[in-house]
């Protein structure tokens, strides 16, 4: 932690606000990302995660606050969009559905930006394409069309297309949402591998809390346009915030609270458990005994 404080963040988001008409989707988002870090942004659907990502990528422009990259403001209500154009090449994005260009082969999809934005020869470009394809665990798919690939393969090609430009920061929009558990693990390993090989900074928008535990250095939780949690996976597990607990464990009533005197019982949510323990009070029950639901009721009584 001390080490983190000494470093300067590669990306800093300060008081970010985004409105759609009269609706304020991002209210006050603040967090920092350090070089080489893997940050997972979690939260319910419709609470502003994707809008945050689009603001970071420059696909949307903030109505308040600012985004800083290596100390320079790249997005704010007063920053011209041309300012962002200069740094956009340092960002890569893996879209949820991969967003491959339908009319091009896999090779052309990956090589398109290389051909248009670099001076590499066709041979060098081909070598880079083959290398990036094998890096994501695919082989001999260069000549195929995107429609010939499965969802998982498309995601990996999308990742290959993004990393072939060697961005400093990779953003992932729900990279594992449509994948089976084996493929999910494979994508998670890929993200870790990219950090290990290229020291790539990653920001991952996800609902998948188990993936976040596995790969994240830091988890940022967004709720109704605000950051409600910002900490390590260990810290989120022990968070006493009811919403955080509800999100990471689901809305399960897994405990009973019993009144010692009259045997009155009540379901207790995991998120409410700590509160019940602290106050020794829950739903009118004051003399509290909290018991896991797995224990048969008869045994308790």
């Amino acid at each position: 932690m001390e080490k983190t404080e000494q470093r300067k963040p590669i990306l800093k988001i300060e008081h970010l606000v985004k409105n759609f008409g009269t609706k304020r989707v991002l209210k006050n988002v603040n967090f920092e990302v350090f070089a080489g870090e893997i940050v997972c942004v979690i939260g319910q659907s419709g609470h502003g995660k994707s809008v945050l990502m689009k603001n970071i990528m420059g696909l949307m422009h903030p109505d308040g606050g600012q985004i800083m990259f290596k100390g320079d403001v790249i997005a704010s209500p007063t920053t011209p969009t041309s300012k962002y154009d200069d740094v956009r090449q340092k960002f890569g994005l893996l879209f949820q559905g991969a967003a491959l260009f339908d009319s091009m082969t896999i090779e052309d999809n990956i090589a398109f930006a290389l051909r248009e934005r670099t001076d590499f020869s066709e041979t060098e470009i081909h070598q880079k394409v083959v290398k990036s394809i094998s890096m994501v665990g695919l082989n001999n798919v260069e000549h195929l069309m995107p429609a010939d690939l499965s969802g998982g393969m498309r995601s990996r090609v999308g990742l290959a297309r993004a990393v072939v430009m060697e961005p400093e920061i990779m953003l992932y929009d729900e990279p594992t949402s449509a994948l089976d558990p084996i493929m999910t693990d494979m994508v998670n390993d890929l993200i870790l591998d990219l950090r290990q090989r290229l020291n790539m900074t990653s920001i991952i928008i996800t609902h998948d809390i188990s993936s976040a535990y596995k790969i994240a250095d830091k988890i940022v939780m967004i709720y109704e346009g605000n950051v409600v949690f910002n900490g390590t996976p260990g810290e989120i597990r022990s968070s006493r915030d009811p919403y955080v607990q509800k999100f990471i464990r689901g809305n399960r009533k897994t405990y009973y609270a019993f009144d010692d005197d009259d045997g009155k019982e009540q379901n207790v949510d995991v998120g409410e458990l700590q509160h019940a323990r602290d106050t020794r009070k829950f739903g009118g029950i004051s003399s509290l005994k909290v018991v896991p639901k797995a224990v048969p009721l008869e045994k308790i009584r």
Binding site: D85, G92, F95, A99, R161
Partner: peptide, 22 residues
């Protein structure tokens, strides 16, 4: 329209490729 809804145009933007030109 299909490129717009499947985020292919956004992908072009993110790769610094000008969709009007290409």
């Amino acid at each position: 329209g299909s490129m717009r809804t499947t985020e292919q145009l956004d992908a072009m933007y993110c790769l610094s490729l000008d969709h009007i030109r290409y």
